[in-house]
Design a binder for these strands. Sequence first.
DNA 1: GCCATTGATACGGATTCCGTATTGATCAAG
DNA 2: CTTGATCAATACGGAATCCGTATCAATGGC
Lengths: 294, 294
Amino acid sequence: MAIDFRQLRYFVTLADTLHFGRAAALLHISQPPLSRQIAALEEELGVTLFKRSSRQVELTVAGRHFHQQAVRIIEALDGAVRSTQATERGERGVLRIGFTMSAAWSVLPPLIKAYGDGAPEVDVQLNEVLPRELNDVLISGKVDVGIAFPWQRPAGLEYLPIHAEPLCAVLPAAHPLARQTEVAVADLAGEPFITLPAATAPALHELVIGCCRESGFEPRIRLETHLQQTIVNLVAEGLGVSLVPWSMSKMQLPGAVFRAISVTRMVEQGVIWAAGNDNPCLPHFLACARVFGR
Amino acid sequence: MAIDFRQLRYFVTLADTLHFGRAAALLHISQPPLSRQIAALEEELGVTLFKRSSRQVELTVAGRHFHQQAVRIIEALDGAVRSTQATERGERGVLRIGFTMSAAWSVLPPLIKAYGDGAPEVDVQLNEVLPRELNDVLISGKVDVGIAFPWQRPAGLEYLPIHAEPLCAVLPAAHPLARQTEVAVADLAGEPFITLPAATAPALHELVIGCCRESGFEPRIRLETHLQQTIVNLVAEGLGVSLVPWSMSKMQLPGAVFRAISVTRMVEQGVIWAAGNDNPCLPHFLACARVFGR
DNA sequence: GCCATTGATACGGATTCCGTATTGATCAAG
DNA sequence: CTTGATCAATACGGAATCCGTATCAATGGC
């Protein structure tokens, strides 16, 4: 099949004008090549597309049908070119984001909104991952970019911090310490702690434990749960205390109060991506993150 | 835009094999032209489609997208070629048939079925027309072929008879003549007649009137109606008698009986078409009609 | 460090394709 | 009936394109 896009364009123009001379002028060629290309097209198709007399040209029934098809195909090519160029510019495509729950409570929503406003044609796929899984899914390419509190960044992964917030204490409302506006971490010694498991959220776990140790005590861990929301819920039920990122205070529960603590411990959120990731959507997303970080 | 179908096919093959040498072999060309065409395609698109090292080739994200599009476009061209060829062979398309009520009661159903079985892809559009309108809609091209009892065939219209049936009498069941198996037309003299208007069905009207006149009487026309079914209905109600094509006896009404008449008057049904009609579906339909006529 | 593999480049020959000029057919006007 | 105008098809020469052979350059395995 040696049919050429040029022949399709010639054919469509001729079918629209039904005049070899005028069609050739529209195509910026002379009339003989148009005659020849149309003849070649008919030859290759094995179908007579035009009924010609030396006085007038008209489409056959098959020609009318081929006209519709040719227009469709030319438009499909045009659309394919445009969308492919848009894909390379990162204006369309798929961007898979892996995020942790702590990110979901802080930077994720505004960052996604800022990016989505600037790249409305991109299909943003959000996948929650456990903090310890993030590096793996980035390296294996299951997601393009992660938003999390980073932990043990292996070679090949890039990192850009965009947000930091202090750790704060979350206490049952009825707890005596809840009357203070700021809590000394040392005063939490002996309190039952509710924490995230080290295996799932190593960075946050270590930050909390380290914070306690530097205040001179080893926290007594009463409960472990995978979700920070659950920590706050359990605190509200009076089952213990915890140290959580300040953004968790967005949870408004009658039984739980959030208090600043005596030492500043920052929980950092940033974007993490594989250096070799060639998703064209990524640069724009990183640019958004960079802007967002200031 | 000088993109060529050849470039699309080269691209798809390369995207499938990810190896210039093997792709070139599959395409029955040598490797250099493949490299050049791919480079030209990337140049025209302004998009890098492959990430090449001298050891391995892989698609970029934009290249994967263009691959899908290219496959779609190539398939669309292939489908367009096939369907255009089928259109010229008359295997698909639209065939508009204008038929009269008398045809609908006799030849239309089996003829449409025979044609439709042999050309299942053709969209057969059935339009009822009044007998006097048929020639006009054929000449103006509103329908491709007519099925009717022909009347005053003008130049440019072709005709092929396919069916003939005798005229018969339709009488109220209680009528004295209904006791006979055959009715002498002359015996109907004086009976109130129900006929089709001459203006709408000139051929049938003239056949009925002529039949009476040759039997020596001028029929007394009591009622005129556009539909033969209505004639039979009115006869069943005892409002009069009529002469109708034998196929009308398919109407089983308790109050009406059909009887052979003493003279043979044939009602002919045939197909009529404009000599210049170039609908490729027409020849096959006419062939069906010819077979059907025997 | 050598060699095999693989994609890109150089160059010559063949093909394709375009444009100018011309032909042939048809229709309208005198 | 003849002549001229119009329009698509054909003839032909020159230019551009494209392919294939040969070669180069880069990479990775042994």
